[in-house]
Amino acid sequence: MANMSQEQKNDHIDCLAWQPSASIEHLKRRAKLMAIIRDFFAKREILEIETPLLSHASVTDPYVLGIPARFQHHGATSETAVYLQTSPEYPMKRLLAAGSGSIYQISKAFRQGDMGRYHNPEFTLLEWYRLGFNHLDLMNEVDALLQTVLHCEPADRVTYSELFTTLLGINPHTASTEQLMQYVQDHIEITTVDNDRNTCLHLLLTHCIEPRIGRHRPLCIYDFPITQAALAKIRDTENPPVASRFEVYFRGLELANGFHELQDSDEQRERFHQDILYRVKHQIPSVPIDEHFLAALQAGLPDCAGVALGIDRLMMLALHADSISDVMSFAFDRA
């Protein structure tokens, strides 16, 4: 390649680009693992369901961006703006509110702009909900699934607070935003640090903590700061209050994110509203709120916990792949 002109290089790449990103061997092993995952849920009598990929609404999370699409009736002159889903969370909760019982789904999800070694704008998500579980119960079930699929050791467990206190000497709940910004500046080579609490916490987690955790067995981090509650219940009884949320990390990958699900539709609407205000303030395009979802919460979501797990990343771990494209038939650059 070294002696080729740029044009020759382009030709060289083009003539191979029809081929899959993953080896056929990887795709065969992936198929076997998918069967094991479906068997895991079948044994627990959890119903497999499907929900739409295309929706009239999208999520309000400021940094989870849907990819827009346009629907047009035959012969119509106007189009309707729709979105490819970022996760199946809202329609799955609508099913729960309608009396489905515990459910799971393996579907494609889409995220605008996310592209890298561990990201593809289109990826496969496993999402499931368990009635009567809290986030700790569901964490145990995720642990069981990982042991089944990866044959790894049982996961370690640590609270978000213990993790930051032990590794960084910072209390993530009580430290001021200024203190967090100072810590970021002192420990991370970075161009600019935003005056934003969650961004600082995320940077500390990705840069200062992730390289040091989950190296030999998965690590479950639970009880998050309330500023990162997302769709999780907040436990005001704790001091300081915490969000009933967990994440799972293994060998440098953020693998799963789960909640003891918020049931209060008023509080949910308020959180959506706060997200939209944040989007406006930071010039992030706004999205319509999913009123069907809020109406379902209003009608009554049963007490449950839910989790989303990145299947492609799970395959990377199972197959010891370096890049997400190594476990996908056609990664985005070849799609």
Partner: peptide, 13 residues
């Protein structure tokens, strides 16, 4: 390297 926590801002290292 593209770095992005599930619900966080995107960065490049």
């Amino acid at each position: 390297e593209f770095v992005k926590p599930g619900k966080g801002q995107a960065f490049n290292r």
